[in-house]
């Protein structure tokens, strides 16, 4: 059990957060940047864990749209 698995080597969460926030129009005050980056780093660690699961990229994703079954 790894509490927070490490992110991929070289992942710069602060730089990524700044760029990605700008790309989607999300204001990111400088005072909050460190906390957002910390959360992104943790998420990157969990994502890295999935990147290491053998054969996962060839798996079919779970969500399936079922035509005719949409009740909306």
């Amino acid at each position: 059990m790894r509490t927070f698995p490490p992110p991929p080597p070289g992942f710069d969460a602060t730089a990524f957060a700044k760029e990605a926030a700008q790309a989607i129009g999300l204001p990111l005050p400088a005072a909050d940047l460190a906390e957002v980056a910390l959360n992104l780093e943790r998420t990157a660690g969990f994502a890295q864990m999935l990147a290491e699961v053998p054969g996962l990229d060839n798996e079919e994703p779970a969500p399936a749209f079922r035509p005719g079954e949409d009740a909306g």
Binding site: A44, E59, P61
Partner: peptide, 10 residues
């Protein structure tokens, strides 16, 4: 990252 998570779900 979310795509891999959905694959892991399967």
């Amino acid at each position: 990252w979310t795509a891999r998570a959905q694959k892991l779900r399967r």
